[in-house]
Amino acid sequence: MHARVRAGEPEAFRELFQAHAGLVHGYAARATGDPSLAEDVVSLTFLEAWRLRGRLRDEGESPRPWLMGIAVNVLRNTTRAKRRYERAMARLPAPAVVPDFADELVGRAADAERLAAAKRGLAALTGGERQAFMLHVWSGLSYEETARALGVRVGTVRSRLSRARARLRRLTDAELGGEPVASSGQPSCDRRQWAVRPSEETIR
């Protein structure tokens, strides 16, 4: 498939997209807290992957590090563009009438809360720690794949993950000193599980 992708065969690239679009979307959605923006990141990532298809390595290696390396750069640029857009919009006068989207948002409340908790946790990390944590823990890449995606050594990935886990542990210990209660009167979701154990891997 790698050779077919490099040759520009559309069907092979479609197979690549179908196999890995979910991985890129999950990474972007957790990073941004915005599913719509995550869809844009997926589109831009695969457009860039098509442009750079000649750099895809041989069959012996998974395409995941290559794709996720592209996704990291696309997400960085997209986030910067979003911040510039938000700053520009903030300078505009407020609209006379604000539409009520309450009904639409009710079904998304739980996901939004989890994403917000994840963003708070990620904000406590440095850029390198955040990328290593998201690729290895959330996206399931191995240490070696994460290192290739970020263009660093495996030892660097391990040290970044160690620091990230320590920071997240301190953050969630402070945040979860008491059990938060949701507005409905029921206990809210366990933020420790979301922020520190977002995948099957447990922070040790």
Results as ranks from 00 to 15, higher is better:
A117C: 04
R108H: 12
G8Q: 02
M89Q: 06
S139A: 05
Q18C: 05
S159M: 15
L92K: 03
R108S: 15
E179K: 14
R120Q: 03
A149V: 08
L125I: 04
A112R: 14
W66I: 00
F13A: 00
L16D: 02
R153L: 05
R14F: 12
L75G: 01
L141D: 13
A174H: 09
E179Q: 15
V157G: 03
H25Y: 11
A109Y: 14
E15W: 01
A71S: 12
A81L: 10
R6E: 05
G127Q: 04
R87I: 03
S43W: 00
S162P: 12
L52V: 01
R120Y: 00
V152M: 02
R169C: 07
I70L: 11
E104Q: 12
I70V: 12
G128N: 02
A81V: 09
L150K: 03
A28C: 14
G185I: 12
A109G: 07
W138V: 15
V157M: 06
A117I: 04
F13S: 00
G107Q: 06
Q186Y: 13
L16P: 05
L115T: 11
R158P: 09
P65Q: 00
E86T: 07
I70D: 03
I70A: 02
A49G: 02
T126K: 06
A12G: 09
M1V: 03
S159H: 11
A147V: 13
A90F: 09
G178I: 10
F133E: 01
Y85N: 13
H136E: 01
R30C: 09
V97E: 07
I70K: 00
A109F: 14
V181D: 06
A90C: 05
A132M: 07
G107V: 14
L125E: 00
S142D: 07
A19W: 04
S199K: 05
R163W: 07
M134P: 11
A29K: 02
K82Y: 13
T126G: 14
R91C: 11
L67Q: 01
L105Q: 08
S62C: 01
R160P: 05
S199Y: 02
G54C: 08
R51A: 00
A149S: 04
S183V: 13
G60Q: 15
Q18R: 15
V98R: 12
L141Y: 02
R158T: 11
L135R: 04
S139P: 09
D173C: 06
R57S: 10
L168F: 01
A112P: 15
Y85L: 14
A109S: 08
P65Y: 06
R163G: 15
T172C: 12
W138N: 15
A102I: 08
R163Q: 13
L67G: 01
V154F: 07
L135S: 01
R53L: 03
A19L: 10
L171K: 02
R51L: 00
A118D: 05
D103F: 05
R197M: 15
E145F: 03
G128I: 03
S43P: 05
Q131S: 06
P95V: 14
A31F: 06
R148N: 01
I70R: 00
R84V: 08
W138M: 14
A3G: 08
D103C: 09
T172I: 14
D173G: 07
A182L: 13
P63Q: 05
E48F: 00
G185S: 04
P198G: 10
P198E: 05
E61W: 03
M68W: 07
A195F: 12
A116R: 07
G107I: 12
G121L: 08
T156R: 13
D111L: 04
R204C: 08
Q186K: 04
D40F: 09
